[in-house]
């Protein structure tokens, strides 16, 4: 009898082990997920190919974009989030194409494609080693996504196992400004953010 019981036990054990393995297998997106470096506001966060810091995050209901003397308003069914910071390549010339806002609930919002490229935002810049340059990220999201959001920056959207920098922001739903203006500058800092339109 013990022989049969032992067989039965072995089969049950094998079934349980297989079940556990099957249900704890990581998703494909977890296996190929980028390698993350975490940081907070104002901190210089280092990834292996670049470093990034976020200095300020502002939230507004309307965004006015001023280029070449003309101002165009952009309304939204949610709010605009404007993040400013600095980035520097460490070893070779590179571009940072992918910027996302990860809300507390895990929903992602990408960099807005409504604002024209005459305003110099992160995807259009080239970063040279040894030369930090200012960086601008603009997102559009529902107001509920603002609190506890994380800014996620990577070189590209598609490369698996690439570096990624995540910065936990201090943006709050309580500080929503009525309007912000982003003005293109011809010299010096490529843009200026002005409050209240």
């Amino acid at each position: 009898m013990t022989g049969m019981m032992r067989t039965a036990l072995a089969v049950t054990f094998a079934a349980a082990a297989l079940y556990a393995l099957q249900h704890t297998r990581p998703l494909y997106s977890d296996i190929t997920s980028p390698i993350v470096s975490w940081g907070g506001m104002g901190e210089d966060v280092e990834a292996s190919a670049f470093r990034l810091s976020l200095d300020r995050v502002r939230v507004a209901r309307t965004l006015n974009v001023e280029t070449f003397g003309k101002t165009k308003p952009y309304t939204s069914s949610g709010v605009w989030v404007v993040a400013e910071g600095k980035a520097e390549a460490k070893f070779e010339t590179l571009s940072l194409i992918s910027g996302e806002w990860l809300s507390r609930r895990g929903v992602r919002y990408i960099l807005t494609d409504r604002i024209p490229a005459t305003i110099e935002m992160m995807p259009g810049d080239v970063y040279q080693p040894g030369l930090p340059r200012p960086l601008l990220l603009v997102f559009e999201m529902p107001p509920e996504a603002v609190n506890g959001g994380t800014v996620v920056v990577a070189r590209s959207k598609l490369m698996p196992l690439d570096d990624e920098i995540r910065i936990a922001t201090d943006a709050s739903e309580a500080d929503i400004e009525p309007a912000l203006t982003i003005r293109r500058n011809e010299e010096g800092q490529p843009w200026s953010i002005l409050p209240q339109g």
Binding site: S76, S77, G78, V107, R108, Y109, I110, T112, D113, R114, E140, M141, P142, E144, A145
Partner: peptide
């Protein structure tokens, strides 16, 4: 362009 989640348009 892209439509962000939760934003009626």
């Amino acid at each position: 362009g892209h439509f962000n989640p939760g934003m009626p348009e």
